[in-house]
């Protein structure tokens, strides 16, 4: 049972000073699932993901990621996880090819040169691989970052707003690619603020002020809200409003 979950954590908590940013979140994500992670700005999505891959020490909680203990085995987790940061975090003073080459070396990718070339081809950047990453447009940076987190064949991808600033066509290509990879058994945890993207997820979780307010398939989430004019967008705006009432007291 436990082995089926790519992510299986309970009571994840993170505090900065006396500000609790992630408040006892439980999350289970099955292998091969595309899991949407939603919530307003500052709700703790990025912080939660950082704890999963060992970038932040959790103040509470336990569990596994790909079967490895998130506290004690973060090195093993890092090897098999691809993490795409919200803010572009590759080297702007390295070229596209140099960035990919660096990542491939760091993960000890076999047939490195080939892997880098393939990755550039798939991106459609052949011929531009010598361009500095810092000179790319915002959307292209996102696409480069995604390509870089796939280069070591991870089993789990943690994507933090991967499509922010990406044009509609590229976004659709991106989601097609995600579902194709999920079909091959990769697991995705994706944060997004786009409703059409949320609808394309197998399951969703909605966070507010560090608390998990609701989770389930998009249909379950809509049904659970019991609104007269049900759409995900309406549900989330409704949740945002109600959670503000709860927390602003």
């Amino acid at each position: 049972m436990k082995g089926n979950f790519a992510i299986d954590v309970r009571g994840m908590t993170k505090r900065f000073g006396d500000h609790t940013v992630v408040n006892g979140i439980d999350l289970q994500v099955r292998g091969g699932e595309v899991y949407g992670f939603l919530g307003p700005n500052g709700s703790g999505k990025t912080t939660f993901i950082r704890m999963l891959c060992g970038l932040l020490d959790a103040d509470g909680g336990e569990g596994t990621c790909l079967g490895f203990d998130i506290i004690r085995e973060s090195d093993s987790i890092k090897r098999q996880v691809g993490y795409m940061t919200q803010r572009f975090s590759f080297y702007e003073d390295l070229s596209i090819a140099e960035n990919l080459d660096f990542v491939a070396r760091m993960y000890g990718v076999e047939n490195r040169r080939e892997a880098v070339r393939e990755s550039i081809d798939r991106l459609g950047l052949a011929g531009r691989q010598k361009q500095l990453a810092g000179e790319l447009s915002g959307g292209w940076k996102q696409r480069l970052a995604l390509a870089a987190c796939l280069i070591h064949n991870p089993r789990l991808l943690l994507l933090d707003e991967p499509t922010a600033g990406v044009d509609p066509k590229a976004r659709r290509d991106f989601w097609e690619q995600i579902h194709e990879l999920a079909g091959q058994g990769l697991t995705f945890l994706i944060t997004t603020h786009y409703m059409d993207e949320a609808e394309r997820c197998d399951r969703l979780a909605y966070l507010s002020y560090g608390n998990l307010l609701t989770s389930g398939t998009p249909a379950e989430v809509i049904a659970g809200a019991g609104l007269t004019n049900p759409s995900l967008e309406e549900v989330f705006i409704h949740l945002m409003g109600s959670s503000k009432d709860n927390f602003s007291q």
């Binding site: 950082r50 090897r79 993490y83 993960y107």
Partner: peptide
């Protein structure tokens, strides 16, 4: 400061 540390630390270094 450039934010690249987040990436570096997410690798098994």
């Amino acid at each position: 400061e450039r934010g690249t540390m987040e990436n570096l630390l997410s690798m098994p270094t």
